[in-house]
Amino acid sequence: MSKFRNSGKKELPPISTASLPDIVFMLLFFFMVTTTMREVTLMVKLTVPKATEISKLEKKSLVSYIYVGPPHKQYQKIYGSEPRVQLNDQFANVGDIPDYITAEREARDEAEVPMMITSLKIDEFTKMGIVNDIKWELRKASALNITYSSRQRAD
């Protein structure tokens, strides 16, 4: 019987950690690929409305964003508490939208311009007046593909 039992107490061999970097690298690559950096810092409070008939935006590179909502507290001294438009990293007026759209178009390939989508991220308590002004400007700039950003409503 002693054939199988080695004499003396043997200590457990240390667990090899040589494969740990490989595992970590695998995770690392996964996150590197899926990461999209936040490009803008939101300066407005934003709770988008809920809806059921929503579709996902597939090509993120073709989407330009317009944010509308009441400014965050630290900006309220300057910009007031009424809903404002934010383009890129700054507050803007509704009249600046055509310029923004033109700039966005120039940043893209010419062939992709007709497929561009403007995503309107608008706070649900905003009044329609400003939304209609934005839509009017978008029509003038003929950026007609829009999506009203919204969350999935469970029902």
Binding site: V24, L27, L28, F31, M32, T34, T35, T36, M37, R38, V48, A51, E53, I54, S55, K56, L57, K60, V63, S119, L120, K135, L138, R139, S142, L144, N145, I146, T147, Y148, S149, S150, R151, Q152
Partner: peptide
């Protein structure tokens, strides 16, 4: 890894697609 974990935003933007009239 931790850096990318923190900066990752997985949210997919979704919304109500509409086409404005020209």
């Amino acid at each position: 890894l931790i850096f990318f974990l923190v900066t990752t935003t997985m949210d997919v933007d979704s919304g109500l697609r509409r086409r404005l009239s020209p």
